[in-house]
Design a protein around this nucleic acid. Structure first.
Lengths: 144, 144
DNA sequence: GGCACTGTAACAATTGCGGTTACAATTAGT
DNA sequence: ACTAATTGTAACCGCAATTGTTACAGTGCC
């Protein structure tokens, strides 16, 4: 199973907004053009980004702009905003092990600490990277 | 989206095997009883664990036993065995961004390093924990 | 008031998961 | 060699999430 591309699309969209004149607006149509998908898909994601306070949307006049500094938006913020993984629930654990069995009774608790540590480690790496850094990496494409 | 419970079930099953007399066998029926699921689900997972060399299975006479030391089986080994996430593909990235757009052209590369780092961090945490440790945590249920 | 947008609902197609039934293949025990 | 238990698999179901699509009501600039 994979983490939804909503996340990568959101980063893409925010990168577009961040690499523009900060006052400029972009419509869902233009954004969809760069991502290469349907505008409605973009609007759904923008709705989540808006709810998280990352962007602001103007109804009639050409769309969306970034609400904060690219340097103060982390990829973890984006990850959380698009709700691609419910908080603390990256791993699903079988729900009803047999309580009459010593292992069944305790497996969830025994596993939980490790799983939390693992997903926290992942999130920490996302938290380290800001939208500004992504934009920088876009300008000098990797080779440099 | 969540990582399949195949992983937690596999750890459960291996814990049962590890907390037994190392020579003893367990049938998919008994294992299913503790996990509280269908024996076929267990057999499917056992098939993967077998393919990965973690267990051995005897057809007629009561089933499965561990093939290695619990202390030398890490949760990462299990995670890989049950193929719950394709190698290096925890995050899905939208497949065809517009190459005529500077951002679209480079977003994948710009994102890749971060995503790889994030999933590697997660895997490193799984690698740290062995089956033996899980079994220990089972015996002294967290409170201790 | 008209027009360009957004927001959202509704639907389809695809995919993976967890569960179930069914049955052939294997093998220990007698 | 026969029996009985058990595995290995295929086939199918129902469910849920994802991505894409059409349709249309709401919003707000000009």
């Amino acid at each position: 199973m994979q983490i939804s591309s909503r996340f990568s699309v959101a980063v893409h969209v925010l990168s577009l907004l961040a690499s523009q004149d900060p006052a400029a607006l972009l419509t869902s149509d233009r954004l969809a053009g760069s991502v290469n998908t349907n505008p409605v898909v973009i609007r759904r994601i923008l709705g989540q980004l808006k709810k998280a306070g990352l962007v602001e949307v103007r109804a009639a006049a050409g769309g969306t702009f970034l609400r904060g500094e690219p340097a103060s938006i982390s990829l973890l913020d984006v990850y959380r905003a698009v709700e691609v993984v419910a908080e603390g629930k990256l791993f699903s654990v079988h729900a009803s092990p047999n309580p009459r069995c010593a292992v069944g009774r305790n497996i969830q608790a025994a596993l939980d600490a490790t799983l939390v540590r693992a997903q926290t480690a992942l999130e920490r790496e996302l938290a380290r990277v800001t939208l500004a850094q992504v934009v920088t990496d876009l300008a000098l494409p990797v080779v440099a």
